[in-house]
Amino acid sequence: MKYIFTTLFSLIFVCSFAQQMSYDEWKKETQSEINLRPEYGNVVKSQGELKEDQTFVDLVLKQDTTPRKGSDHLVRLGFTYLSKGDMVTAMKRFNQAWLLDPKNENVYWGYGAIYGSFSDYSAAIVQYDKGLVINPESSVILTDKATLYFVQFQQDQDNSKLNTALDLLKRSYSIDPKNTSTTYKLSICYFLSKDCINAWKFYNECQKLGGQPIAENYTNALKNICPN
């Protein structure tokens, strides 16, 4: 099943396209750029910086009316830049989203995606867990956190990680059974667990929901190893 890993990993983070910098370069930049640290690194800002922040917040609120709406808008922008491999701009948008609404769990979904794209799984999980403290019912965070665990399972064959992924995905599914990413990854996890019945069950559910993002080589593997 080793070849399936490539397929899975390409589906996990929207920034699987060519990144504009390496992780070493990223970490070097964060030493001098607080904009690239989650929550701006929680540094104490100068009066001038605080004034600039307030000017930005006031401008956004004129357009989006509430802090949460403005924050969600910026999170969406962050993921758009992430999909293009522009990690710097993505993190800046996520931080601006946090500035508007520190209690928006989706900000931490964005932070986690940044670190996940660099394969820093422990740092990504820290951010996902912060989001889940705010909203334990966030299915998107639960699904992406689960993804980190089964990617690691593919690398080291540690069954405890696969079991953790399954537990998280089942929680996510109980919250939102119509998320195609969740149903697809449940199918894959059951496939890796050699549970063909459930692998097909969630594969079929994913198809009924629109069939995305099912990859052809996963379909072929499922048919070959779990013929029904």
Rank of each mutant, 00 (worst) to 15 (best):
T7C: 01
P213S: 11
G110R: 06
D144T: 12
V57A: 06
T219H: 09
L59A: 15
N159V: 12
Q127D: 06
A124P: 01
S71W: 04
D176Q: 10
K223V: 10
D156Y: 01
K145S: 08
E216Q: 14
D72E: 11
Y108L: 04
V88C: 00
I134V: 13
V107T: 14
Y108P: 03
T182S: 12
R76I: 10
Q127I: 00
F5V: 01
N228Q: 14
K92E: 12
C206W: 03
K103L: 12
P102Y: 12
Q152A: 04
A123V: 00
I12D: 01
N179D: 15
K170N: 13
S83H: 06
D158I: 01
V43S: 10
L99Q: 13
R37T: 09
W98Y: 15
N220F: 02
L99V: 06
A18E: 15
S122C: 00
N179A: 08
G70R: 06
N163K: 14
T80A: 14
D72Y: 04
L50S: 06
L186C: 10
I197C: 01
P213F: 11
Y121I: 01
F118G: 00
T147Q: 09
W98F: 15
D129G: 01
Q157K: 15
T65Q: 11
T143D: 12
A146W: 03
T182A: 11
P227E: 14
G48C: 00
A90R: 08
F5Q: 14
V140Q: 05
G116W: 02
P136S: 15
Q155T: 08
K69N: 13
